[in-house]
Amino acid sequence: MPRVRTKPDLQDRLGALMVRVGIRRMAHLVVPGLYCVGQPDPASPVLVTANYKLSFDALRFALHGASAWILVLDTRGVNVWCAAGKGTLSTAEVVRRVQSSRLAEVVSGRELVLPQLAATGVAGFKVRRATGFSVAWGPVRAADLPAFLAADRQADEPMRRVTFTLAERLVLAPVELALALKPLAAALAVAFLLGGVGPGVFSLGAAAARGTWLGLALLGGVLLGCVGLPALLPWLPGRLFSLKAGLLGLAGGALLALLAPAGGLERLGLVLVATAVASWLGMNFTGCTPYTSPSGVEWEMRRAMPAQALALLAGVAAFVVGAF
């Protein structure tokens, strides 16, 4: 039985950083199976988690000074909530892992503590039927586990509610940015080409000068949609993400238009492009929040996407026509 440390060392911290930015993600999988912390006896609690390094680490570091069993499921290295939503953290996986680890021979209790956010993929009453182990739903955050265990498996209201703090929002921004990078590179190339279009032939000088401003509008839209929106989410007006982010893009685009040595049409183009790009990327952030319903997102997308497409096309057209 592997006993794991409950205090992070340098390697843990470096590994956590690499997982976050996506370097060699799969090299940081935790091998599924039974682990322990401290000196557990057969009556010690059994805590279940995903084999995503950060989920596993959050759990073991929260258990510093305690004795417990940790059952690690095979969720293909995905965190608890996403794995439960995608079906890899499922009733079947819990049942399989309880049986393959021969948990019933190791512990005397017949209870598993699962993180509450696993409930999307796991039916507690079915686990009990299949294994004889009942499921106690632990708190949303591993940090609350000691209090939960001390209170005899009782979680108070805040322990049961998801939060979306500034830190929790900003941690997602690098992923969003990384996803936007490839399309951005392609768009910048197009911006350079469009910048060179003008009266007469294609001009490299114009491409560099004008293309840079169009590129800045694109870049601004990406930054505002991917970082600005998550950072300012609770303070931006309205509930629609496309609108919140669009307003940010509008403000950024307007600032750029004021600075650009350009005509009215070109300025309008810059504003429209920045608004459309920020709005689209901001709307994508709905996938990362813990409070947007898919039905709501689909409703929003059906209304926002035509406007975003129109703004982008009109913006590019205005910018190109403005050169003549």
Binding site: G121, T292, S293, P294, V297
Partner: peptide, 26 residues
């Protein structure tokens, strides 16, 4: 409600229902 489906998944009688999904634009 964010349509995560946890309630319906854990309801033993099927009294509470929801169409769960991924609320992600892409």
């Amino acid at each position: 409600c964010m349509e995560c489906g946890a309630c319906a998944m854990n309801c033993p009688t099927g009294a509470i229902t929801v169409t769960p999904g991924v609320g992600c634009a892409s």
